[in-house]
Computed example of a mutant assay.
Amino acid sequence: MKFKQLILALPLACLLQLASHANAQPAQESALVQARQGFTTKIIRHGQKYPAIPAPPAGVFERVQYKSPVGALSAYVTPKPEGDGKYPAIIWITGGDSNSLDEMWKPQPRENDQSAAAYRRPGLVLMLPSLRGGNDNPGQRESFYGEVDDVIAAADYLASLPYVDPKRIYLGGHSTGGTLAMLVAASTSKFRGIFAFGPVASASYYGTNYNYYDLKDKEEIKRRAPILWLNAVRSEMYVLEGAVGGNVEDLHAMRSQNMNSAIHFREVAGKTHFSILAPANEMIAEKIIAAAKDGGEVEIDSADIRELARRK
């Protein structure tokens, strides 16, 4: 779905011009953090309110709360893996209304599996956080702004669990969740690796879908535009999209501005914005578990992309 025609303040050509200047500056990890200091976002409308996250089936998830700057927020976490030791973990940010969660354990079609079920496997801990203003959480939706702090707080919660390896916490997200994951990546080095599926160059491209600030305010828009903060990313990050439709134009635009060796853009032939999820998440889960065992890193190279194109 395309939203660019709705946005008059910063069309893609203008963002590219700003990005060329921003990403040509010396790499600075705290650039987005500094840009947010002293700036207060102004929320002018509110999204739909949802009930509390539903109780999960026993043995699939545990319903927990984690402490964020706006108060206690709800989340699902998979049960403690069997055996001793510390395990790698991943936080997954859903697409659509990323602030709220529903019955994430329900099976979904393989061609559009947004459940992150691939990460519910032995040797790996999965956390699905709801964010401010979602479900019955405190605070209000801030549209890719305060939610950055919530995701970082979720990582702190995971790191505090005695069975989680705090040095091997990853972050993944799809669509709006992928856009948010990129903004988180520009704000912290807490994550071992980040996997952003189908993000956009600027969250403003979603129009009035999921944006509750003034879409004509350039300062609001700039602080929510991943393309402007590529140089701030320090964790290894893979930005993935299916080559069939989706947000391919945004992937190309961000790749054209990228001077950061920590960011890798990957386009998968034959896959869509949705069909990429199941095979790619399965591959990433396998790689995270293998890397934890051998002390290595998660890498997605050209051979992996060819393999993903073949996987159903």
Score class of each variant (00 low, 15 high):
Asp150His: 09
Ala89Pro: 02
Glu220Tyr: 08
Pro56Asp: 06
Asp214Ala: 11
Ile276Ser: 03
Tyr212Cys: 00
His174Lys: 01
Pro122Ser: 11
Leu277Ala: 05
Tyr157Thr: 05
Ala27Cys: 02
Ala35Val: 00
Leu171Lys: 09
Gly193Pro: 07
Arg310Met: 14
Thr272Ser: 14
Val248Asp: 02
Ala154Glu: 06
Phe144Asn: 08
Val233Arg: 01
Arg224Gly: 08
Val268Cys: 00
Ala185Leu: 02
Asp97Phe: 05
Pro107His: 11
Ala285Lys: 06
Glu220Cys: 00
Leu128Phe: 05
Arg223Glu: 06
Val200Phe: 01
Glu267Val: 13
His273Asn: 08
Leu180Tyr: 01
Ser175Val: 04
Trp92Lys: 01
Gln257Lys: 12
Gly95Ser: 13
Leu240Asn: 00
Ser275Pro: 02
Gly139Trp: 02
Ala24Arg: 12
Ser115Cys: 04
Asn137Ser: 11
Phe195Arg: 11
Ser130Ile: 09
Lys49Glu: 14
Tyr213Phe: 15
Glu142Asn: 08
Asp301Met: 05
Gln140Trp: 01
Leu16Tyr: 00
Lys106Asp: 01
Ile263Phe: 07
Ala181Leu: 07
Gln257Gly: 03
Pro26His: 02
Leu171Phe: 02
Ile284Arg: 02
Ile263Lys: 01
Ala303His: 14
Pro199Val: 10
Asn112Trp: 04
Glu286Phe: 00
Thr179Val: 12
Ser261Trp: 04
Ser30Trp: 07
Gly133Ser: 08
Leu171Asp: 03
Ile91Ser: 01
Glu62Asn: 14
Ile227Val: 11
Leu183Trp: 03
Ala186Leu: 10
Tyr170Asp: 04
Asn247His: 14
Lys222Ala: 09
Pro122Met: 08
Ile305Thr: 11
His264Ile: 08
Lys106Val: 14
Gln140Val: 15
Ala303Phe: 10
Asp150Phe: 10
Ala9Lys: 12
Gly139Ile: 04
Leu6Asn: 12
Tyr163Ile: 09
Ile276Lys: 00
Leu161Ser: 02
Phe191Asp: 01
Asn209Ala: 13
Asn135Trp: 10
Leu308Val: 05
Met283His: 03
Glu236Lys: 15
Leu16Pro: 00
Ser187Pro: 01
Met254Ile: 10
Asn137Gln: 11
Met259Tyr: 12
Leu10Ser: 07
Ser130Tyr: 07
Ser68Thr: 14
Arg121Phe: 09
Gln257Cys: 12
Gly59Lys: 05
Tyr205Phe: 15
Thr188Leu: 03
Asp156Thr: 11
Val164Thr: 09
Asp84Cys: 03
Ala278His: 12
Pro122Trp: 11
Ala262Tyr: 06
Ala186Phe: 04
Glu299Asn: 13
Val244Ala: 08
